[in-house]
Design a protein around this nucleic acid. Structure first.
Lengths: 161, 161
DNA sequence: TACATCTGGTTGACGTGTGAACCAATCCGC
DNA sequence: GCGGATTGGTTCACACGTCAACCAGATGTA
């Protein structure tokens, strides 16, 4: 605590580089989706998961698990998507308190137009400019960080008890 | 356009890995700052830039340039930060329409507490787990993407004319 | 069966980001 | 100098995310 251990030059550069890339990439992809298909990144992810699910239907809690979204966020977002005819909500037959989200025809159409364009954007902004080695390193780093964050989260939970 | 060129296995994994890391990292860092210092990531960045500026003062448009924020966002956020005594706003003497943002004592105190903790978090979640080679690769990738995004933005602007 | 607890989901209040409209001061070409 | 374009900034309306409170149906345990 008394010695902060600031980032040195290469560390600083890597960190800033990552942050800038992060902001730039999300901003770019979100804007492309939005201007070309009228979908936000959030809409896209919801529709992507639904379109891959059997019959295009999922329980909200399953969808929330896949997206790692808070349940209130999901509920609010589904409400807005329902108003725009992207999805519909039905009552669940086997669990009386639950619901089922179903992708609507308009949602299906939009995601089928959006998906190839989105992949093309991801390629054009990132993937196509990476060597196989860079691709591997990126995967490695991502996996390491994911594991580490899970660890930190567990520690946090332990401390709370 | 007729052939979408989907991502292959390693590409897919790298992309998802990056996205997950991105979400997880921002979420973690933001939560740490928020619970320990009552600062959002946005607050932190504003205060960080201000505290490094001469006399802790910057014109909003300079700050906006550094943060790459829309001016309306910056204006709104500064308003809220002013209400919380983190910054103050003064009229600019040399440009009658402009303002100057100054870091307030409370803002200075908070950033000085938050900064070392924030760096420690960045280390503990990311930097300390990377080899020098990974650090270099990350920097390289970030730089490539930044250049590429700038290129795409220029093309976009050209198309609009 | 009865009561406590847990789970799936919605709602409301609030903080935050975006785009467009707007105002005033400044700049620039004549 | 004058009039139009540009720049610095704020404001409004709206979309979005988070948290806490809440409700109803399910589950577990005596």
């Amino acid at each position: 605590m008394t010695e902060p251990r600031w980032l040195d030059e290469p560390e600083q550069r890597a960190w800033r580089s990552l942050m800038t890339m992060q902001d730039g990439l999300s901003e770019f992809l979100d804007r492309q989706l939005r201007t070309r298909c009228g979908l936000s990144d959030a809409d896209y992810q919801v529709l992507a998961h639904l379109s891959e699910a059997p019959e295009g239907r999922l329980r909200p809690f399953e969808l929330g698990g896949l997206l790692r979204w808070e349940k209130s966020r999901l509920s609010q977002h589904l409400g807005r998507m329902e108003n725009r005819d992207l999805v519909t909500r039905e009552r669940c037959l086997t669990d009386q308190r639950g619901a089922v989200v179903v992708i609507a025809p308009r949602g299906r159409d939009l995601i089928e137009v959006a998906a190839p364009q989105h992949v093309a954007d991801v390629r054009s902004a990132l993937i196509d400019h990476l060597t196989p080695a860079e691709l591997r390193t990126l995967t490695t780093i991502g996996d390491k960080v994911r594991k580490r964050l899970a660890e930190l989260e567990r520690e946090q939970l332990d401390r709370e008890q």
